[in-house]
């Protein structure tokens, strides 16, 4: 059982200490401050809030007739927003 105690106590010390250190570091560096603002960190200038990024999959569920356009589409996925035409989705 000596090895067992060494393994258990050793790993608890190392990993438990790492968890405590992570929490202390997070508090110290302000990771828990201004949470509403930090929730926006996954967005950016090219994918701003309000722009879905995966919403144009099923052509059959879109209106049957759409105007051909080349300018950016508001609130459409950035992946295709700049150049969607009718023909793009016919397979």
């Amino acid at each position: 059982m000596t090895v067992g105690y060494v393994v258990l106590l050793g790993t608890v010390t190392v990993f438990g200490g790492a968890a405590l250190f992570a929490f202390w570091w997070a508090v110290k560096t302000g990771q828990f401050d201004h949470p509403d603002q930090q929730a926006t960190s996954i967005f950016g200038p090219d994918e701003p809030i309000g722009m879905p990024t995966d919403d144009v999959l099923y052509p059959s569920e879109r209106p049957a007739v759409r105007p051909r356009r080349t300018e950016p589409l508001p609130l459409l996925g950035s992946r295709f927003a700049h150049r969607i035409t009718e023909g793009d989705w016919e397979s």
């Binding site: 090219d46 994918e47 701003p48 722009m51 990024t53 080349t70 300018e71 950016p72 950035s78 992946r79 295709f80 927003a81 700049h82 150049r83 969607i84 793009d88 989705w89 397979s91």
Partner: peptide
């Protein structure tokens, strides 16, 4: 195989 993506992955404005 199939359709090519239209433009780079994550570009929004033309």
């Amino acid at each position: 195989y199939g359709r090519q993506r239209v433009g780079p992955t994550l570009l929004a404005p033309e």
